[in-house]
Write a protein that binds this DNA or RNA. Structure first.
Length: 256
DNA sequence: ATGGTAGCCGCGCTA
């Protein structure tokens, strides 16, 4: 079973690339972030024609998440019951014996800003809810754009980024709190190339210079981590014309 | 050099 997550930065713009990539990679479950579409504008027909069920929770211009699945999803949940949030950032469903949570963690803008405080509150509430989800669903996957580079090795220039947004100690601590619930960073279950990133700024030739961060993650509960046989980043998607600023991340699970 | 680019129904904001 192949799991994937991709911040598409506008599903409208990236739909042709998404369909292309679905056909080539045949993932079973795909979490999307930053769809930037309200639900009425979601390209359901195109996704279904490609062979996927679609669950989505969107808004115009900002945010928006979606879950594409080969099998029909059940027990859909929109948002966090412990955190009232007008921003569409969270979507969960049960599919193929897995509980899958798609997250788009707030960016936080700058350390100390109001948006940063919101990010930390959002993450605390996420941990609270995931603890319950994990207790009810031992086979849990949490995938998405976490907007956190967990360690210095996930940052192209750790000195320049020290203490900055996406890398601050409070954010990293919040990420470790998620791991401490009993979740594993699937990417780190395997030997990986140095300087592996999932996001590169559009500006200043960030991708060409590999000035990136690894902020997109697939977290797996213990029973799923034991089944995980591969994890990676589809860097080639960032080389395309008119790319998202994020590359898709993937994790493959062996059948139980 | 506090810049730069991309996407949004925009007349700045968010990332």
């Amino acid at each position: 079973m192949k799991l994937a997550s991709w911040n598409v930065n506008s599903l409208k713009v990236r739909l042709p690339q998404l369909l292309d990539w679905l056909a080539a990679q045949q993932p079973d479950i795909v979490c999307l972030q930053e769809t930037k579409l309200d639900d009425a504008a979601f390209p359901r027909r195109e996704i279904e024609t490609a062979g996927y069920h679609a669950a989505f929770c969107g808004q115009k211009t900002y945010n928006g998440v979606a879950l594409l699945t080969r099998e029909a999803p059940s027990e859909l949940a929109f948002g966090n019951p412990h955190f009232t949030d007008p921003q569409k950032r969270l979507l969960a469903a049960t599919v193929g014996g897995l509980r899958v949570v798609c997250v788009y963690v707030p960016n936080g803008q700058a350390v100390g800003s109001d948006k940063y405080a919101y990010k930390l509150e959002w993450l605390a509430a996420l941990a609270c809810w995931l603890a319950e989800e994990l207790a009810a669903n031992p086979r849990l996957a949490v995938a998405g754009d976490f907007n956190i580079a967990p360690e210095d090795r996930d940052v192209h220039d750790p000195i320049a980024w020290a203490g900055q947004i996406l890398c601050s100690e409070a954010e990293r601590s919040a990420f470790r709190q998620l791991l401490n619930l009993g979740l594993n960073d699937s990417f780190r279950l395997f030997e990986q190339a140095e300087k592996s990133f999932s996001w590169w700024d559009y500006r200043m030739l960030g991708f060409q210079k590999n000035q990136g961060l690894r902020i997109d993650h697939i977290l797996l509960s213990e029973p799923l981590a034991r089944r995980c046989v591969a994890a990676g980043i589809s860097r080639e998607m960032r080389k395309r014309e008119r790319p998202s600023d994020h590359a898709p991340v993937t994790a493959e699970l062996a059948e139980p």
